[in-house]
Design a protein around this nucleic acid. Structure first.
Lengths: 232, 232
DNA sequence: GGCTTACGATACGAGACCGTCTCGTATTGA
DNA sequence: TCAATACGAGACGGTCTCGTATCGTAAGCC
């Protein structure tokens, strides 16, 4: 069920390949890559999930339909492999502070959001994947769940260290931290994402709050502040 | 272009109705309501945008296809009217403080998120509306733009009053405030939304920040702050 | 060379949907 | 009464897609 017992095995490669060495003409690796490339190109062109037909993919790849059906039993299986292939590994954690890890995580989201294929998948996933349970499951298992677990882990570390408020729900803490970047990467087309400093701004804004108050210096190089806590 | 010159006129009602009093049998209001109800029912059942065919709508409504085509020229026009009909008016602003307005705005989002039709539209909008420019435009003009403008207006009021940090981008401020609720209403199926106190928690968490620090009394009874604006 | 399999291309049947049109019937105004 | 329009139902031609099958050809193993 969970991704614990299925440790994200690569799972790549179309079905039926590891068996006995085939006898006749071997399958063309080039054709396979052309198929993947065609799907990704169509995604980046903004093709809707319903317009993404096998025939269109075959035409775009310069490949016969049979070459696709020889590898995947149907469109859903192909897309499952495409989704599984696309995700880059999560960023390594274990930075000096939990704040560094948070910034890394948000920056990972930012970089993913800059990739059109990635955005395409998220948006298609939201509206259309109800009809495609296997694809939805794979997407959730390989993309959604690992990301959420990563953020939760960092947040719990911050809470345990007494550096994040313990009076708030962990879910709410996570949402406060990644909400802004997810909005920009998923919901809004025109949102700017290029600034590499954006994740730091977002994380520090979430940590310090956006309400005006006697300015508190940003967290890292705490300089001596004359008046900080009027009450303990 | 903008919604300024088109002040959100009701725009309801299928085409061709305001002319001379028709001669023959008048159009059935019941059929019209049945069509709208059928679309909304299919939305709530999770039907994907691509499975939402005219024939299915007609069958669900117990109506002939011609009765639909007599009112709308195609599926897109029908859905435009459905979307336009669905939105409830934005909450009134002008609460005692900008914080009250923020909570009202977030609570509006929360209540919208509890309505399955509303979620369906948002999700479908994200992935599929590229192919349907008129529908996308209507949705943006009647839903997205007014909401964003409402939040921006509140935020600007807070900034002008010196109660929101002026060193952050207005867009970022908005995202910090409505990010968490939009995540729960749009992206995550299983997120709890029932708690009516949720908007207050979210707004106050955004204002005060989620970093642990010497507790600061909640915002409302703003203590007299000696130094506010160092720069205009 | 012969066997086997993959290749691109394309024909095929099945089925969903679109938008139009035609039934027979119902409901209005003139 | 009668013309006009709407109604539900569904046939119709057209388009699109799916998944299978069949070409002639290409590329490996024996």
């Amino acid at each position: 069920m969970t991704s614990a017992d299925t440790p994200l095995k690569p799972c790549h490669g179309p079905a039926g390949e590891q068996d006995a060495p085939r006898r006749g003409r071997p399958r063309s690796e080039a054709a396979e890559q052309a198929i993947y490339a065609a799907v990704e190109k169509l995604m980046e062109d903004g093709t809707g999930l319903s317009e993404l037909s096998i025939e269109r993919i075959a035409a775009e790849a310069g490949v016969g339909k049979a070459t696709i059906y020889r590898r995947w039993p149907n469109k859903e299986a192909l897309l499952v492999d495409v989704v599984a292939r696309l995700e880059e590994p999560l960023p390594p954690l274990g930075g000096p502070t939990y704040r560094d890890d948070l910034i890394s995580a948000v920056d990972y989201m930012r970089r993913r959001g800059l990739i059109k294929r990635s955005r395409w998948i998220v948006r298609s996933a939201l509206g259309q994947m109800n009809a495609w349970p296997e694809l939805k499951h794979t997407y959730h298992e390989r993309v959604v769940h690992p990301r959420r677990e990563m953020v939760r882990q960092i947040v719990r570390r911050g809470v345990a260290a007494g550096e994040l408020r313990a009076d708030l729900d962990v879910e709410l803490l996570c949402e406060m931290l990644i909400g802004p970047i997810l909005l920009r990467t998923v919901l809004w087309d025109d949102a700017p994402l290029e600034d590499p400093d954006l994740p730091r701004q977002m994380v520090d804004a979430a940590l310090q709050g956006i309400g005006a108050r006697p300015p508190v210096p940003p967290v890292p190089p705490v300089p001596p502040v004359p008046r900080v806590s009027s009450a303990s």
